[in-house]
Amino acid sequence: MDIGYYPGCALHGSSNDYGSSVRACLNALGARLCELDDWICCGATAAHSLNHMLALALPSRNLAIAERQGYEELLAPCPMCSMELLKARCALTASSDLREKVSEIVELEVQGKTRVLNLIQILQKIGLDAIKQRAVRTLKEFRPACYYGCLLTRPADTVQFDDCEQPSSMETILCALGAEPVQWNYKTECCGAGMTMADGPTTLELSHKILSNAVAHGANCMVVACPMCHVNLDMKQADIDREYDCRHDLAVYYLSDLVGLALGLDEKSLGIDRHFVVKR
């Protein structure tokens, strides 16, 4: 299976552990990721905060590239990217005037036809049975708190994925591989996302609440599918511990890490050795 792949800046930058993990995991499942030619940044929070049109144009350029390369589906493992791509896609499909205008701006005809998928959707597409068949070990020692954050399920109309209040798609996959996800209350609360740099204390506070709730509900690790969530919960965990005088000691995995472990991949190829909190 060949899939159009939009890694986004984070997976090529400090979240390259997520990049390795996604690639290793999906390769092991027989999916080949074909990176878009000369893709550009989606603009993220900065674009939609400061320039409405830019927030449409940047992802549209990438959709246009995907269309030109003939990809019907595009994997964007970063929920910020996939949400921005989907927002642009919705706006483009809704208005022919906008399609024309944006095509002119990005110097490439764009229709907004490419379907944008997140990591979970790709795994769903591969199928639980296929994943289970290839699994070589159980994940039963993992009691993860599956954390969806904001943008995997929101805005609900745009991303149309899972239940935006009580999502369960990660649990379904992990349960099938033997893990025992916990029920907890902060699945869709925000970790502060892109405010890490701009407003450090805020992200520490929000992330602290999330980690605390996961621990309180008996989790022994967390699972995310977002590079920003991972930064705030993993890289910043030491800061959180210091700020709130506590010790969460909670390893934070990407979904592809745990699926990859079940498939028999080693921690190094999945990039788990590059995480900050290492436990077990």
């Binding site: 800046c9 000369d38 550009i40 409405h52 830019l54 701006i105 110097e107 590059r274």
Partner: peptide
């Protein structure tokens, strides 16, 4: 952790990116 890159990635067609910005900034 091999997460530190002195030189970041740059796209090939940087002129295009600037033009996109200029067009959007005029609105």
């Amino acid at each position: 952790r091999r997460k530190f890159h002195f030189r970041g990635e740059r796209v090939k067609d940087r002129g295009l990116v600037k033009r996109i910005f200029d067009r959007c900034n005029s609105i």
